[in-house]
Design a protein around this nucleic acid. Structure first.
Lengths: 208, 208
DNA sequence: CACATTCTGTATCAATCAATACAAAATATA
DNA sequence: TATATTTTGTATTGATTGATACAGAATGTG
């Protein structure tokens, strides 16, 4: 998919922009302003292209939005998930996940707070046609990646055999939503970090 | 506050609408369409008043939005919280909270999905000035109401003396965010309900 | 080089946006 | 009843919205 579009030589003036780059720029605008809040002027400016080029490539605003969502998913845009999978010890991995969640929920440097899927996309799911399906896929995929890691830890003996991987995976993702929510209300990262020891135990605990 | 405005006789043509009623109607529109997605035309139509009346009473769109948020808070708009406080047994109360969350996240009869604060307001917190403060207050208030109930149960002896009320209260609210998130992706209420037994135990469990 | 093809930039479209001007309507007071 | 005061409905404001028409620029092909 990333290899067979290299030699495609087309007749006519060549495209002057990188599809992925402008798509990521568009995603950032949607992330910061929401679907309705992001105007085509905002988008074309951030993407560095003009209106007609945008419409020729993506169709319309809605389709650009859907493309941005897919781009986020296919380019591993979720930092906490990457942090989780990058840590070898499971307890540190869970902790890293929560820390990453709090970080990207409170770093208001670029104005894009929280999670692109968890706040921006989720809000527009009932409004923009086609979003709900992409959101569903993304959630299922995240649940799967988290629970598969737990299953792997079970096979290593690092987690008890009766550990409920799927339930705990869902719990992790749902806790993320809570952190994003609180961060949006202005709670400091310090305060959010205060209970991650408790919550790490909650996720990995064997009580039921 | 609801009593001393009855006898207030003012000179001039009297107002022809009920402030609370039109405010609730406005809230429903924001709830369903989001802040940017809700046009003044949508709002005036749902509120049953004309533009000039709206602007005379509330100022502008932003102030109307803030008034709607405050109205939601002061009128006990959160159904799950009411369900929680209406149940005498603490285990049933927690369960009722979760069930109510799932219900109002998936009943798409009126198009207003999830939680007004948890999805609509939270998204606009970084965009509309004044929203963040109201959101912060609402979250703190909810945390407090939940944890106070837990403290009450402790004093009755229905919960162990070392029960971490505040942490579990926050956990409950954060789980709510997770349910709203999943519901927006189209997950059925049946599937969401499948793990509430597990989560009720998680909230009330004494393991740490 | 001439032509067909495709993309880019300017300039602009009708529609809708949030917000108002203004006069008629409805009240209290005198 | 006459006047002052406030709200209402109609009609409209300039600005912005998402989306295009069109001509010129940049490529491959013959």
């Amino acid at each position: 998919m990333t290899k067979n579009d290299v030699v495609k030589k087309k007749v006519g003036r060549p495209i002057s922009f990188d599809r992925n780059k402008v798509l990521i720029a568009a995603m950032r605008v949607f992330w910061a302003k929401g679907y309705d809040g992001a105007s085509m002027k905002d988008l074309t400016k951030a993407m560095g292209i003009n209106g007609p080029s945008l419409y020729a490539e993506f169709g319309d605003k809605r389709e650009l939005y859907l493309a941005a969502i897919e781009c986020y998913g296919s380019h591993n845009g979720c930092a906490p998930l990457n942090a989780f999978e990058g840590e070898s010890d499971i307890k540190l991995a869970v902790r890293a996940f929560l820390v990453a969640v709090i970080e990207y929920s409170t770093e208001n440097g670029r104005g894009a707070l929280g999670c692109f899927l968890g706040s921006c996309v989720a809000t527009s799911a009932g409004e923009v046609e086609g979003v709900r399906e992409l959101l569903y896929e993304a959630i299922q995929d995240t649940d799967k990646r988290l629970s598969e890691r737990f299953e792997f830890e079970k096979s290593k003996g690092c987690l008890p055999a009766d550990f409920p991987s799927v339930e705990r995976a869902k719990l992790m993702l749902d806790l993320r939503q809570g952190y994003v929510f609180r961060a949006r209300s202005g709670v400091s990262p310090t305060e959010l970090l205060s209970d991650i020891a408790f919550r790490t135990k909650l996720i990995l605990g064997t009580c039921a």
